[in-house]
């Protein structure tokens, strides 16, 4: 057997100094890396690393609806597939879509719908493919953050970017952006997606055990984190266009004619 050793349950999720197993404070995000426009064939693409999450998103469309009967006469139909690679988790996952993946595909789609101006593209589909190459805690949220970047990268008109982040409860305390171990051995998980400028929560799920006060505290922590992530999303897009602008200016330098 070549099986990797199973990660063991940590003795404590928070140490005496109030730090978590990866050394973070309770209100601290994992390191976050965002990229856009890295796939050649897709109309838009994005890549996110958040902790050990490594997720690639491609957007195709607006394109002709296929099969035809799914087309809507007055707007574009967004389709979304959240899918985990077989090697993305400790135990190999069957590549067939699980019920969890089907549910997440639905709620992720519903988290993006409110910002996309679908009525501009009747009778078409916009396909969002989220491939989790390596999964850590909070992969649905990381997927949403990257998916909204990929939609923007595809040039699809949107009201705003959607940013997402989970908050959870570990050792009785609310903590931001849970890692795998914290999710597994913690007491609750509360993933949130936010459209910051509209103040609109477009994804909200919860499992575990929370009091109403803990929920309210968690919701505001998650919303703050979404705002931070949102400014990183904007920077990532700006950087891409700055790079394009530099490249174009270089090419257009006037030639000296003798």
């Amino acid at each position: 057997m070549n099986k990797l050793p199973e990660p063991k349950q940590p003795e404590k999720l928070i140490d005496e100094k109030g730090l978590r197993i990866d050394g973070r404070r309770l209100d601290q995000l994992r390191p976050l890396k965002l990229e856009v426009g890295l796939l050649d064939k897709a109309d838009g693409s994005a890549y996110i690393e958040q902790g050990k999450n490594k997720i690639l998103v491609a957007v195709y469309g607006p394109r002709e609806a296929h099969p035809k009967h799914i087309a809507m006469p007055e707007r574009a139909v967004i389709r979304c597939r959240y899918h985990m690679a077989p090697f993305s988790v400790d135990e190999r996952k069957s590549p067939a879509p699980s019920r969890r993946e089907m549910e997440l595909s639905k709620v992720i789609r519903e988290s993006l719908e409110p910002v996309v101006l679908t009525d501009l593209y009747p009778r078409t589909t916009i396909d969002v493919f989220i491939e989790v190459l390596q999964s850590d805690g909070g992969s649905r949220c990381a997927g949403i953050t990257a998916a909204s970047l990929a939609l923007a990268d595809a040039g699809i008109p949107m009201k705003e970017l959607v940013a997402a982040c989970a908050v959870g409860k570990i050792q009785g305390k609310m903590a931001l952006d849970l890692s795998d171990a914290e999710d597994k051995y913690g007491d609750a998980d509360l993933p949130v997606a936010l459209v910051p400028n509209m103040g609109l929560v477009t994804l909200l799920q919860m499992d575990g055990n929370l009091t109403t006060a803990e929920f309210e505290q968690g919701l505001s922590m998650a919303m703050e984190a979404c705002k931070t992530i949102h400014s990183m999303q904007r920077e990532t897009l700006k950087k891409k266009y700055a790079t394009i602008k530099d490249a174009v200016e270089e090419r257009e330098e006037p030639e000296i004619v003798a």
């Binding site: 519903e110 909200l204 919860m206 109403t212 919701l219």
Partner: peptide, 30 residues
């Protein structure tokens, strides 16, 4: 749950909620 704690949540539909709506709903749900 029977202690008045939240044990699951799910948002659905093609739009969203503002935080005040969520807080009111959670308290009414109890």
């Amino acid at each position: 749950d029977k202690n008045g704690h939240l044990c699951a949540m799910q948002k659905g539909g093609l739009y969203g909620f503002i935080p005040d709506e969520l807080k009111r709903a959670v308290n009414l749900a109890v």
